Simulated scan of single mutants.
Amino acid sequence: MGEVYGTQQRPRKRRGRRLLITLIVFLVLLGAVLVGLDRFAASYAERMISDRVAEQVADQQATSEKPDVTIEGVPFLTQVLDGRYQEIHIQLPHFSGPAGNGRTLRTDLLDVRATDVDAPLDTLRSGNGDIVAGAVTGTGTIDYAQVAELINQPGLKLAEQNGKLVGSAPVQALGQTFDVSGAATVAVKDNVVQIRFSDVTAAGLPDVPIVKNLIASYVQKLAVDLTVPELPLNLKVQKVEPQPDGLRFTAGATNVPLNTGGL
């Protein structure tokens, strides 16, 4: 009886192992299908957002290469069902736009991040209701060669030094050429970047009224107001900081509608 019992158990064990292997293979395949479906859905949404951003850039008389959009956080479909998205990352390479007085401002990359995005599933299905980003931030850098070009003073060179914008340029006075230098304040007011130089000095510069007036006149020519081009997603420039590679601006907006003109 013992031998018969052992003979009956072996096929059951083999069948059990085959069933377990089949289940594991099925789960792996199901996981692969779900991952593929998740990535397909995310890619479709990213393309749609990219197209909308490109349309808005064109409407604002600005230009850029095709926006590169990434919906952060996985899985994507879980975020869809929940109606909340962690972050949408939008990169606009070579963004440029009008800066007033026939001038153009350019940045190699306008980097935008929309966080805390509320997009209820019913709104996505019906098209009724609002899709809102709780906060949007954008950053970009304007290189110093471009800023000097916009100020339009011969020989002007700009750089960052100890966190400040500094400039130097040759100035003719009393039949001589002096290299003057000074620091500038950089401020933002109503989406306009204001650059103002002060404390301009030069080694060997004569301390006489005519020279002082000449330098004061030159300093006034260095003052410039740069209107920041209209940015996507209602972004407004909040801060400008001198960095080694240029003036880095930070823009922001809150409670931005993404389906009613904000995007």
Rank of each mutant, 00 (worst) to 15 (best):
G6W: 09
G6Y: 05
Q8L: 14
R10D: 07
R10L: 06
R15Q: 15
R18E: 09
I21T: 14
T22V: 08
I24E: 00
V25C: 11
F26C: 12
L27T: 10
V33C: 03
A45T: 06
R47F: 01
A54K: 04
A62P: 04
T63Y: 08
P67S: 06
D68F: 03
V69P: 01
E72F: 05
V74I: 08
Q79G: 04
Q79E: 12
Y85Q: 04
Q86E: 15
E87R: 15
R106I: 03
T107H: 06
T107Q: 15
D118G: 08
S126N: 13
G127Q: 01
G129E: 07
I131L: 00
T139K: 08
I142Y: 07
Q146G: 06
E149V: 00
L150V: 08
I151D: 09
P154T: 10
E160M: 08
K164T: 05
S168Y: 03
L174W: 09
L174V: 14
T177A: 04
G182Y: 07
A183V: 09
N191F: 10
I210C: 03
K212F: 05
N213Q: 15
S217T: 12
A223E: 15
E230H: 06
E230L: 04
E230M: 02
L231Y: 02
L233G: 06
Q238M: 11
Q238I: 06
V240M: 10
T254G: 14
G262N: 02
